[in-house]
Simulated assay, not measured.
Amino acid sequence: MKRFIRDLGQKLLLKQHRFPGQISLDGYNTVKTFRQFDDRYTAPLHGFPDAEEYWRLSSAKPHLAQIRIPTLLINALDDPFLGPGSFPYEIARQNPHLFLETPHYGGHVGFVNFRDTDYWSEKRAFRFIQEQQ
């Protein structure tokens, strides 16, 4: 978390130069969590009053039950950004068009195979498309 917040600060520094007057890094060292970051930067910059409202209105989760074409949703269980409540197991069980896969490892949008240049998730998505034909 510490490293990620620090890296986000570096990105904000670049954006501060591109968008003068819209981003202030004063007191950035007090930001320690995603909620604090999103409350202070992400939500207001995108027209939301706070992180909670941003997360609620930007989430795809409420729409998953309405999926009517075969859809593969992959997310690793070791994703550092998502807690156990983030995985829509019950929605996937109830929707025959939603295929949820939660491998133990893969991180956040990872699934890197260091033996070659292909990502496991890309190969899995291609296989899923073939399975649906």
Rank of each mutant, 00 (worst) to 15 (best):
A125W: 00
A60V: 13
R18Q: 15
F126Y: 10
E52M: 00
L57Q: 15
Q132D: 03
P84G: 12
D38Q: 14
G47Q: 04
S58G: 13
N113I: 03
P49F: 02
I23H: 07
D78W: 05
R40H: 06
V31F: 04
A76I: 04
Y54A: 11
L64V: 08
P88A: 03
A65G: 09
L12Y: 13
G110C: 08
G9D: 05
D116H: 07
K32L: 09
R18M: 10
L100V: 02
G110Q: 10
G106V: 05
E101I: 04
K2V: 03
R3E: 12
R68I: 05
I91E: 07
F99C: 04
V31D: 04
T117C: 11
P103H: 03
Q94N: 12
F34P: 00
D26Y: 12
L73R: 02
P70V: 00
Y28D: 03
L12W: 11
K32T: 09
D38P: 08
H97Y: 14
G9C: 07
P96Q: 08
P103D: 02
E131K: 12
S59Q: 00
K11L: 12
F81V: 09
A51P: 08
F34Q: 04
D38S: 09
R56K: 15
I69L: 09
R18I: 01
R18L: 14
L8P: 00
V31P: 03
I129T: 03
A51I: 10
A43Y: 07
P44I: 08
D50I: 04
Y119C: 09
Q22M: 06
Q10S: 13
Y41P: 07
P103R: 04
I74L: 15
H17K: 15
K32W: 01
R127T: 08
Q130V: 00
P44V: 07
L77K: 13
W55R: 03
P44F: 11
